[in-house]
Write a protein that binds this DNA or RNA. Structure first.
Lengths: 368, 368
DNA sequence: CTGTTAGCGCTTTCAT
DNA sequence: ATGAAAGCGCTAACAG
């Protein structure tokens, strides 16, 4: 009783309520648990007794006997990332209105922490899992397949995992990236930076190597880079590895990588960023070089944020339906928990290019 | 067994491991639970059997008997708010490294949802609670005091609750606001907008009414407004209710309210915002009126964000030690769970005014 | 409609 | 060092 140092009265149980109400324990359970049938008279007695004792149910005990916890396990890469906290909102709301609670664990993009998280959640007997996996294409995902084998349904969100045949909720990252980059190309850009790409120790030097790197990458990273390559290919623009970051995913690294590109003899005239931190990093690089968005360098990036609209100029961004993704994922999960055994469903939600003013024609004149 | 529709093998229990290992259940429990003593020989046997069966502990059952869940309940106003997601990071890390898990619930600033959240968490038998309460000064907080009475420690974060004698982790909101506003005054500003204040139907028309509104407000709102008033008073500047928003807390409302102030005959020359959404709202108002930050209107606001540094000009912001607040809160909570019965502690962490370039001297010339 | 009796999977005396 | 048995708070048959 670690929490019971100051001689707090032990929480009253069903037994004590039964005694106080002068009825059997099962009757109390039926009344308070709201199942079976009880006469109005006894129900009232029980309620009064429960009220008086300040009875609070112990869901642990309930779950023990029913085998159901009415709890969803949510494993995300980073709750501080606006994308994921948006998703979370959709999940929490949906879960709550369906009578579920959600336990949220953040993995910081580390597969090892993801494994821990799944283990913890399974140990807590969650009824199902929503996970944005940190697993790359070649990583072992037995922690997820094991969960499924044990009968705990999992739905993937934001990132697919090749070897896992299960429900998923994603956007068409490849097409979203392709069309954004294509619009940059239409503005005349041919030197387009990509921040950021899959992390790798040895950057690709040709397309073939690039594709083999892609095969190892995190799904969404791979898709976005593929979309970028698609757009380049459509326009017959040769790709240049010097224009693709391969760095650790944080703002500082993005800043450094983009700064490097900007210092190239033939620097990019446009930048495509695949995540909020990369966008902020790119903006830092631009500032440092005294380059202005649009006027000097065009910019389009993934994941719209409230502040993007108040930048000068306002940023053109790809907006994902974060909340909706969370809603769909949890609905799908709950359907599985409720016994839906149909084939795995892949929900592809529409993303949207929110056109503002950070992208435009190439400017020859450059600051510096 | 809602989750067990597809004839999944039931998860092996301690009993089955015992059978497979040819030992008693208690021995298995001791081995797997890592307590008591077992000989190396049997320990090995048990481990092998457990491995082979893919045994996973059921922490629900464990918690049932021990009365301890090793779980912290976290109740926050809004996980999507960068401030809270920063706090969350600190909490998660600390909890994890102390062997605790965290269940996070978001209340959307609604007291009713907070009550539900606490009930859910208590029902799940969490060992302690960290809460950023949505309770105003006059609200009933029995849901929190009851939790404490039952022996579940609670530590407040970000917001104090008057009637609750318990641990807390906050910054000195009043002083942070005062000094920020004072620096604005030093730059010559006398018309300083405050966005946003406590929500109220009938805005105060004089200082006295203002103070009575303050007494009802959310603690942090009240403190920040007090700090603003302190600075004004120090400088002998009369306060003007027209310069204080009393609107619902969202970006749109902030935008509208600040736009109204900007349209005043005697508009503000500086704006002080108390939260990220208010800052973004104020920036929208400025854009709409074609007013530039610093050049036309100075701006200082609460809660630094990565993007604030890449705005043009970069924004001067009050930075709270979010992560650290989470760390301290969870450490304090865990200490209580571990039996610390000393007097309630109020941790006041230092905030910091990150000086950038959005604040400066009053400019007479105005756009429009 | 209501009470009694078994457990759920684990930990914890208490013997051995 | 190990096993047997009791019990955590609740629900789920099964009687009555």
């Amino acid at each position: 009783m670690a929490a019971d140092h100051q001689n707090h009265p032990a929480a009253p149980t069903i037994t004590e309520v039964a005694a106080a109400a002068g009825v059997g324990r099962a009757t109390v359970a039926r009344t308070l648990g709201n199942y079976g049938s009880v006469s109005e008279a006894t129900r009232a007695k029980v309620m009064r007794a429960a009220e008086k004792l300040g009875y609070q149910p112990n869901t642990l005990a309930r779950s023990m006997t029913t085998g159901v916890t009415k709890t969803l396990g949510i494993v995300l890469a980073d709750v501080a990332n606006p994308f994921f906290s948006g998703v979370l909102k959709g999940i929490s709301e949906t879960a709550k209105s369906a009578g579920y609670d959600a336990i949220i664990l953040s993995t910081d993009e580390k597969l090892e922490l993801e494994r821990d998280a799944i283990a913890v959640l399974l140990a807590k007997q969650v009824d199902g899992l929503v996970v944005a996996s940190a697993a790359g294409r070649s990583d072992d995902v037995s922690h997820l397949s094991n969960a499924m084998d044990r009968g705990t349904p999992v739905v993937l969100i934001d990132r697919l995992v090749d070897k896992l045949e299960t429900d998923s909720v994603v956007i068409d990252n490849r097409e979203a990236a392709r069309s954004a980059v294509a619009s940059l190309i239409q503005h005349g850009h041919r030197r387009i930076a990509f921040a950021w790409g899959p992390v790798t120790l040895s950057p690709a030097t040709d397309l073939k190597q690039m594709h083999s790197i892609l095969d190892e990458a995190l799904w969404s990273d791979g898709e976005r880079l593929r979309g970028y390559l698609d757009a380049l290919e459509e326009a017959g623009i040769p790709f240049d590895t010097a224009l693709i970051t391969h760095v650790l995913k944080n703002e500082g690294q993005a800043t450094r990588a983009v700064s490097g590109m900007l210092a190239l003899a033939d620097p990019p005239t446009a930048i495509f960023t695949t995540e909020t931190e990369a966008t902020v990093g790119a903006l830092h690089s631009l500032r440092a070089k005294n380059l202005r968005v649009l006027k000097d360098v065009s910019l389009i990036g993934f994941d719209d944020s409230p502040w993007a609209a108040v930048m000068e100029p306002p940023l053109t961004m790809i907006q994902q339906p974060m909340r909706q993704m969370g809603v769909v994922a949890s609905q799908q999960l709950i359907a599985r928990i409720d016994g839906d055994t149909s084939a795995p469903k892949k929900h592809v939600l529409p993303s949207q290019l929110v056109a503002r003013s950070s992208d435009g024609p190439v400017r020859a004149a450059r600051g510096n």
